[in-house]
Design a protein around this nucleic acid. Structure first.
Length: 255
DNA sequence: ATGGCTATGTAGCATAGA
């Protein structure tokens, strides 16, 4: 099965791109972030016509997550249990016996902001919950926009980004603790090209100049990592007219 | 050093993204 994650930066605007991409790539599971769509307006019919089922947890203007699946999704959980949060950032479901977590980690804005404090506390709650999920579901995949570049090789200009939000030591430590629960970074299971990124600023021709960061990830529990066949970032949609600033990341697991 | 784009809500900009 092919699983994927894509921060679409408005599902309303990106729906044509998503539908084309589903047809071309034929993924079995796609986790979406930044749908920016209230549940009442979710484009369920269009996705169902394309042969997919949908679960979603959205809100107006900001955030919003969804899981798009070929087969039925069960045991659906929205939000982190026990963590009160107005912002719709987490959705989990079980598909083909694989536990799928779709996450939109807070951006944090800047290391001296209240949003950064929120980001770190959010990550703490997320980690606690994932530890629990991992106990319940040995076959666990945690996909999403982590808003963390795990290492300097994931940043086009590590010097310029040093200590900045997405790269700061506390964020990387939080990412490391999540990995330490028993997960692998799917992308790094395989040799990859240098300067592989999943997000590029809309400004300054950043995409063309390969000025990006790798912040969208597919983390796999060890049993899933052992049967992962490939993991790649598909930069094709980033080249389209009116693209999302994020590219989709996809992994194939032998299931 | 600064601003550079895009999307949303809502009607001329403010907020947020990363």
């Amino acid at each position: 099965m092919i699983i994927a994650t894509w921060n679409v930066n408005s599902l309303k605007v990106r729906l044509p791109h998503l539908l084309d991409w589903l047809e071309q790539r034929q993924p079995d599971v796609v986790c979406l972030q930044e749908t920016k769509t209230e549940d009442a307006n979710f484009p369920a019919a269009a996705l169902q016509s394309a042969g997919y089922q949908v679960v979603f947890s959205g809100q107006k203007t900001y955030n919003g997550v969804a899981i798009v699946t070929r087969n039925a999704a069960g045991d659906i959980q929205a939000g982190i249990p026990g963590f009160v949060d107005e912002q719709k950032r987490v959705l989990a479901a079980t598909v083909n016996g694989v536990r799928i977590v779709c996450a939109y980690v807070p951006n944090g804005q800047a290391v001296d902001s209240d949003k950064y404090v929120y980001k770190l506390s959010w990550l703490e709650a997320f980690e606690r919950w994932l530890a629990d999920e991992l106990k319940r579901h040995p076959d666990l995949a945690v996909l999403g926009d982590y808003n963390i570049a795990p290492a300097d090789e994931d940043v086009h200009d590590p010097k310029a980004w040093e200590g900045q939000v997405l790269c700061s030591a506390p964020e990387r430590a939080a990412f490391g603790r999540i990995i330490g629960l028993g997960l692998r970074d799917g992308f790094r299971l395989f040799p990859q090209e240098a300067r592989s990124f999943s997000w590029w600023d809309y400004r300054m021709n950043a995409f063309r100049r390969k000025m990006g960061v790798r912040i969208d990830h597919i983390l796999l529990s060890h049993p899933l990592a052992a049967i992962c066949k490939r993991c790649e970032i598909d930069i094709a949609p980033r080249k389209l007219e009116r693209p999302s600033d994020h590219a989709p990341v996809m992994a194939e697991i032998a299931r």
